[in-house]
């Protein structure tokens, strides 16, 4: 076993001090060490997006990140997006549009969507942006491309795009489009 290295990390607002094997990924540190299981392991090789978290505000894959390399950083998972005002608008939109089925890829989808909306607001283009020097309009084609790093085998893609579209444009319904379940 390797010598462990001390580090600290803030996850969903809570600071943790721990010592990790240098081989430990951020995903394994979250799940196995800190017992934050909201980020999921779908492939462990950067090919599915289920482990997506927001690392210092940007969406990244926690499975391809060494924990030790992120000493002092801030991680937000899907569970940490909520505020005192309630669920995050993207989270609300996923509920409202039934943008998930089995739910396993969903925390990663939601973190990715939060990151993608932010990237678009900052004017970052995508592969389907027609005019690289123009404004970015987050339409369905743009959303689908920007969300393509998150595979969903239940294939809730149509509803995921609807949810992100609504959340991005600030019109996410508060579960009002569907009959709420008590």
């Amino acid at each position: 076993m390797s010598t462990t290295i001390p580090m600290s990390i803030t996850v969903d607002g809570e600071r943790h001090d721990l010592a990790v094997d240098p081989r430990t990924t951020l995903l394994d540190a979250l799940r196995e060490r800190l017992r934050v299981t909201t980020a999921k392991k779908g492939c462990d090789h950067g090919q599915c997006g289920a482990c997506t978290v927001l690392l210092d505000g940007r969406r990244v894959l926690s499975c391809l990140t060494l924990a030790v390399a992120k000493d002092g950083s801030h991680v937000v998972t899907a569970d940490g997006l909520a505020t005192d005002d309630g669920l995050h608008p993207v989270t609300e939109a996923f509920l409202a549009y039934d943008a998930y089925q089995c739910g396993f890829c969903t925390p990663g989808q939601i973190c990715s969507a939060v990151g993608a909306i932010d990237e678009a607001r900052r004017g970052m283009p995508s592969a389907v942006t027609a005019d690289l020097t123009g404004e970015v309009t987050l339409d369905r084609t743009e959303i689908a491309e920007r969300m393509s790093g998150n595979l969903c085998r239940c294939a809730a893609y149509v509803n995921i795009v609807s949810a992100v579209e609504d959340a991005a444009h600030g019109t996410a319904p508060r579960s009002s489009t569907l009959e709420a379940q008590a």
Partner: peptide, 8 residues
């Protein structure tokens, strides 16, 4: 790649 990977 993907948005996440391009960030990394």
């Amino acid at each position: 790649a993907s948005g996440q990977l391009r960030n990394m």
